[in-house]
């Protein structure tokens, strides 16, 4: 059961990380990147590493998504 769940999550991770490259609108790409970090955090927890899960939840979902959003917003205002 857990193997099946892990397989589904890993497939979802692959799809999310590939679609970040091909999505045209920046805001949609940022949201999909946040989903990628969320699934990655759940996978860390399932693999028995809660330490990394907390860090991924804070750094991946919180900081990097916000940083990308701020940087792309500033870039769009310049143009």
């Amino acid at each position: 059961m857990e193997d099946l769940l892990l397989f589904i999550f890993l497939t979802f991770l692959l799809a999310a990380s590939l679609s970040v490259c091909f999505i045209k609108k920046l805001i949609h790409a940022v949201i999909v990147f946040g989903v990628y970090s969320l699934v990655m955090s759940v996978i860390w927890q399932m693999l028995g590493s809660p330490d990394l899960a907390i860090t991924e939840a804070a750094a991946g979902i919180g900081v990097s998504v916000i940083m990308i959003a701020v940087v792309t917003r500033l870039g769009r205002e310049d143009q």
Binding site: D51, A53, I54, T55, A58, G62, V63, I66
Partner: peptide, 17 residues
């Protein structure tokens, strides 16, 4: 689980929020 890095990151994210 956790420690200085993970806890500090949660604190930093709260300030950014």
């Amino acid at each position: 689980p956790g420690g200085g890095f993970a806890g500090g990151m949660v604190l930093g994210v709260s300030l950014v929020l």
